[in-house]
Design a protein around this nucleic acid. Sequence first.
DNA 1: CTGTTTATGTGATGTAGGTCACTCCCCTAC
DNA 2: GTAGGGGAGTGACCTACATCACATAAACAG
Lengths: 190, 190
Amino acid sequence: MEAKELLRTHVTKSASLTEEQFDYFFSHFQKQDFKKGQAIITAGDTVNCEYFVISGCLKSFYINEDIKMFILQFAMPTWWASDYSALYNNTKASINVDCITDAEVLCLSNDDREKLCNELHQVEHFFRWRTNRGYVAAQKRLLSFMNNNVKYRYEELLKLYPELYNIVPKNLIAAYLGVSRETLSRLYTS
Amino acid sequence: MEAKELLRTHVTKSASLTEEQFDYFFSHFQKQDFKKGQAIITAGDTVNCEYFVISGCLKSFYINEDIKMFILQFAMPTWWASDYSALYNNTKASINVDCITDAEVLCLSNDDREKLCNELHQVEHFFRWRTNRGYVAAQKRLLSFMNNNVKYRYEELLKLYPELYNIVPKNLIAAYLGVSRETLSRLYTS
DNA sequence: CTGTTTATGTGATGTAGGTCACTCCCCTAC
DNA sequence: GTAGGGGAGTGACCTACATCACATAAACAG
């Protein structure tokens, strides 16, 4: 079973679960399919779930008052996405999540995650490490933002995730880098 | 006992530990005193510990090739600081931590944290939630960076942490906002 | 197949913030 | 006391990137 194996491999990198424990863990996930362009979380929504990507590519993004989009994260297979601020604090979404390509995801509710963390120490361990890595990555990105110019950040991104180049249009890359699509376009032409 | 109470109050906000469990937890921390300007972690060091601030104010910062400083975080009482990338991945520090004012901290080693997380499920729960909050805060700051100008970010910072205004010199505030001290200085004068 | 939307390039011009250079002030160490 | 260093203000000039406007080509729906 494709999705189950992907999740198992991912989780057992930082936690050791028995076969039965993983089966129990997995039984709380719900498989969902989405089409390219479809919204998963929309600003203003109540947020109940986080999503583990099996195939395809998602983006989580913020739209400001001037309808300008800022991309917080792309999510490729084995990545997680949600509006974590809304999910953890039980508030309305301020972030959107949608599909850059057709996508299959596994959906886990906030309540089930907390229940599983309570019941299985190793699950709590797994989620601690997942967030640890996310935190360190967010700090790195923040530093790169302050320290490096657009060209450097663009090359850094493509070096880290070369697969994005073929999947994600340049205007979205620009929204991730926090520059206008025009500036990104001019980087290698003029 | 001052430091112990501060830590207890902080921890029990997101985890329930019995008196004995907390005593055991606390026994792994080591009290340390630092003077204004003293370094706690220097880039290139091996990083073994994270630090819980009891009194005073720390900063964690990165120095680039042009000797320009970027501040990742200020740390006031009940905040934690370290080079988490180095700490978690067991690599050399690329981040510095030092004291803006005289400071008292509680120091917890990486090994002890992992040991405690293993022995006490509630401790693992606490650290998961601590990082969750950190992750959400880092994402918020990233968004504010992309979306807002310096003046807005400065006012947002002072609204969130008014105590910084009296403790932290403006050139350090500028380094936190990712802007030159001259630009920050000009915000309200011209 | 065709009209419409989406992605991308490019010129002209505007602007926020950077850099450099100089000044003044206050604090602390001797 | 005074010398020296750090914090802070400010003028002159520079530059990276934004914005607007227009053009073109590919992708996509009817």
